[in-house]
Structures are given as structure tokens and as C-alpha cells.
């Protein structure tokens, strides 16, 4: 897209996009690291993930502040309007993803060292597809690629299925060995967090798709897995 006649306008939009990408980068590694911490029972890494959350919150505030100021001063229209709307909403979603990852870190600290590694792997396996969703949607944002955004939006179903099977797997462990019930409960919450991160990625995909095309992705048109989880 051509630059604005007022070049500071372009600069301000670029700065917002850059801050959003920074936020996205931080929370993406928070997802991966929090799950690696569960997997390897790495409590130091879990604490480190928790310590990154405030910087995500600050970036969100920073993005919000810039957008409010930009709306007041420049009254964005058309693609500009859609992009500040999408950025504002996306910043909120990323902040939530940060919170959910932090929560995985907190639960890791509460897990007993004796939790079977099979259970730990189960949760960790879900980290990859979920963080990939976020990676792809951020990529769609960076490259203004509506097709990629739509693909992310359509593949949330896979995450849901992953969650459902993990849910059953955890229940099985808990039934087989009631001593794992405490850990299993934490694990289920972690898996639920990852599933919800997937939902946030879907929301981001909707905002980005709208930003790029001016059209809405309709929630009822999205493929959906039968809901066996909670």
C-alpha cells in the first residue's frame, strides 16, 4: 500500500504493527517454554516464563495508548481504520495468551517431581501445534496474507481434537493410578489453557482477515470438532 501523504501517519501505524509483532514473538516463546518446563520439570524455566508476562502487559498498554492517540488525531478510515481496530483487538488476545502461558508456568511449579513423564509429554505435545497456529497467524499479519489467516482459522478444529484426545488420555492415567489425580487435574487445566490459546489465535485470524479484506469470517462457517472435553 502506498504511503500516506502525512508520513508520520505511516510511521505511527508501522510502530503499532512492530509492537504487536514484538508482543507476538514474546508470547509465542512463552507457550513453547512453558510447555518445555512442564515436559522437563524445569522449574527455573517456568519461573522465567512467569517473569515475562509483565512485559507483555506493558506492550499491550503501549499499543492501546498509541491507538487511542492515533484515532483522536488522525481519524483513520478504510484500511487504516481496519488495521487499528485489528491491532487493538489482537493486542488483547495476545495479552490473554501471555496470561494462559504464565498459568501453565505456575502450575508447573506446583507439580510433584514424581509426576510420570508420559503425562508431561502429553501436554508438551500440544504446545507445538498451538504455537504453530500463533506463528502462522502472526505471519499472516506481517505479510498481509488473508489466505494464511483463513487457514489458521479453519484449522482450530485440529487443536480441539488434540485437546479432546489429551483429555481422554489424562483421564485414563488418573483412573489407572489415582495417585496421579492431583497432577492430572493440573495437566487438564494446562491442556485447556492450550486449547484456549488456540481459540485466541482463531480470533486473531478473524481480525487480521477483516483488516486485509474488509470482510468478516463467519464463526458458523468454521469446521468444528464434536466437543467431548470440558
Amino acid at each position: 500500500m502506498a504511503d500516506h501523504i502525512v508520513s508520520a501517519f505511516t510511521d505511527e501505524l508501522d510502530k503499532i504493527a512492530a509492537d504487536l509483532m514484538r508482543m507476538g514473538g514474546i508470547v509465542e516463546t512463552m507457550i513453547l517454554d512453558s510447555c518445555q518446563a512442564v515436559d522437563r520439570n524445569d522449574k527455573e524455566l517456568a519461573k522465567d516464563v512467569i517473569s515475562r508476562d509483565p512485559s507483555v502487559d506493558r506492550l499491550e498498554e503501549e499499543v492501546e495508548r498509541q491507538i487511542v492517540s492515533l484515532i483522536a488525531r488522525r481519524q483513520p478510515m478504510a484500511h487504516d481504520l481496519r488495521s487499528v481496530f485489528a491491532a487493538l483487538k489482537t493486542a488483547g488476545e495476545l495479552e490473554r495468551i501471555g496470561d494462559l502461558s504464565k498459568n501453565i508456568g505456575k502450575r508447573t511449579l506446583m507439580l510433584d517431581d514424581a509426576v510420570p513423564s508420559m503425562m508431561r509429554h502429553g501436554v508438551a505435545r500440544m504446545a507445538r501445534p498451538v504455537s504453530l497456529q500463533l506463528h502462522s497467524v502472526l505471519d499472516a499479519y506481517a505479510t498481509s496474507n488473508a489466505e494464511t489467516a483463513k487457514m489458521v482459522w479453519e484449522s482450530d478444529d485440529d487443536i480441539d481434537q488434540h485437546y479432546n484426545s489429551l483429555f481422554r488420555e489424562m483421564i485414563t492415567y488418573m483412573i489407572e493410578d489415582p495417585r496421579t489425580i492431583g497432577a492430572g487435574a493440573h495437566m487438564l487445566f494446562m491442556a485447556k489453557n492450550l486449547e484456549r490459546i488456540g481459540d485466541h489465535c482463531t480470533n486473531i485470524a478473524e481480525f487480521i482477515y477483516f483488516q486485509i479484506t474488509g470482510e468478516y469470517l463467519m464463526p458458523h462457517e468454521r469446521p468444528k470438532a464434536p466437543n467431548t472435553g470440558v
Partner: peptide, 19 residues
């Protein structure tokens, strides 16, 4: 027109860009 103009020239004009 102001949220999703169809034409590039409209977009450029209302967002204050060079045509």
C-alpha cells in the same frame, strides 16, 4: 465506503495516500 471501499482509488483518497 469508509470501512471497506472496493476501489483502490477510493481507498487512497480517503486514507490520505498518493493515488
Amino acid at each position: 465506503i469508509f470501512t471497506s471501499p472496493r476501489e483502490r482509488r477510493t481507498e487512497d483518497y480517503i486514507t490520505g495516500r498518493f493515488g
